[in-house]
Design a protein around this nucleic acid. Sequence first.
RNA 1: GGACCUGUGGUGCAGCUCGGAGUGCACGCCGGCCUGUCAAGCCGGAGGUCGCGGGUUCAAAUCCCGUCAGGUCCGCCA
Length: 591
Amino acid sequence: MRREGAARARGLRTDYCGELGPEDVGRTVSVCGWVSRRREHGEHLAFVDLRDHTGIIQCVVDGGHDIRAEHVIKVTGELRLRPEGTVNEAIPTGEVEVGASEVEILSVAEPPPFSVDGRIAAEEQVRLRYRYVDLRRERMQANLRLRAQVNAAIRRSMERQGFVEIETPLLWTPTPEGAREFAIPSRLQPGSFYVLPQSPQIAKQLLMLSGFDRYYQIARCMRDEDLRADRQFEFTQLDLEASFVRQEDLWEVVSDSVLEVARSVTGKEPPPVETMTWSEALERFGTDKPDLRFKMELVRLEEAVAGTGFKAFQAEAVRALCLKGGAELGRGRLDALTDRAKKLGAAGLVWLRVLRQSDGLALESPVAKFLSDKEKAAVVAATGAEEGDLLLVVAGERARSCRVLGQLRLDLAQPAVSEPPYRFCWITEFPLFEGLDDDGNPVAAHHPFTMPHPDDLDRLESDPLSVRSQSYDLVLNGWELGSGSIRIHRADIQRRIFSVLGISEQEAESRFGFLLGAFRYGAPPHGGFAYGIDRLAALMAGEESIREVIAFPKTQSGADLMAESPRALPERQLEELGLRLLPRPEAKSPG
RNA sequence: GGACCUGUGGUGCAGCUCGGAGUGCACGCCGGCCUGUCAAGCCGGAGGUCGCGGGUUCAAAUCCCGUCAGGUCCGCCA
């Protein structure tokens, strides 16, 4: 438990509270911290549980001191074994206590707005308003320290692999694509604006053209989009880019870093990162971010019901889920599932209970009468269903049917997202384009500098929607951690992409000018990746929201309840920036 | 932009369906007692615009409308 490196930096104290033990008995020690709890026994005896970031130590003090919860005090005295029968097995320092000869009150505290010991869980609203108190709690101390451990593991991995840490500007220039940006008015050039980077994407590609070969940065990114449990305005990514590499090389680099993180946090060797194509993920799990911790994969039934007389199953795709033991679900529950499927975009949901009959398994369902015995048998065989299971079938367009079942799979069987094990997975071969915009032009799925799959290059113009890209996502337990791609470094291919996207040469020049310009001076083949450290740290900490691993997060309406941002600026400051406010339709009054 | 959940002494809850005096529980707080506790114990006490505004009603924490705040989600996040 003792940390040698910290020994010289203990300052006012000789020891940390949580590190004292029987081996220290007999020493005169000084400990500093916050009063976690006091137990008074009259004029001459009181117990004080003193807390610092390492833990809690019991101090035995004279009852005359006015020592209250969260007072900051320094206690000096001899460390001794607790008397027989008074050992507290519930805490690591429970065998010893400080017999206080001197108590110094370093500062007094008002009663905290909620309990620091976590006995009663305060509402998030209250926690955020008094975040400095909230962060004293064991949970938040552990979370933020775990996050620091994640950062350290990432740096270890990147340095080991020869990456160079380079900082890029926070005051950047507006880019037309992607997320909404935060704008910063220029004082020296009134009317002009910087923006905060939504990612260092362009900067890091330029660093490749500059010959740095391997760049990384633990980078803050800002996106002015609506907030969620896994999304804040500002978040932190491991951002990296490498030259003269193939996708496989990057997967290895990134896998090394996340496995180093998992190893460091869990103390165990994590399972290797798996890989599957986007198309396979959709077929097997009905999503591009599969949760591999549990099976219940989607099943193809097209062959089993080929040539069926049942109209609903005469569709492009007929897919099923088998819910183990689901036959006992009541009618109300099944109706709710059907509603859910419809809300998700399915035409309907067919359920079949798998029951035992004298001569084998039988299917009980409102539509059983429309299926032949042979079809029923084929369905049972294809799904591997056993007595007591429930089959859920969606028929219709392929991608939609898979996605509906993919969501039902999560609804019915997904464990808490932060529960181990940690099953990292690469999703590869994303489509280059996703659908068409209002003008009938394909829309870039990743960004317009993503290199197409070499085997599909000749279909770029003839059948763009079938073209795969060299882009890839990293997924952990159903959460998208990040994405990356091999970039286009050749002008001819970039021209063809812009042409397919319906972007003219002039438009490309004005929108991506300085990047395209830089490419004219010698661009190495390169590619990169970025993943969210907030999300990774949250999952590693067993949290469902990234706010629990961020010291001072914003609420869903973008407010900091402690700092009370955002706020109005004084008129003088606006003037200096060359800004004038439009009248607001209505003033917000505090509730 | 939209859907749903939540808002009651400092904290966490119950009360709301079926309207009848701010009623209750746990923690905390203040005072007293208490020399081996550790969620200390015992006795006493203080503390409330029921988020805010409007409506219905003889009467609203409770029903209705609006609004604000927090959360979850859809849209959005190349």
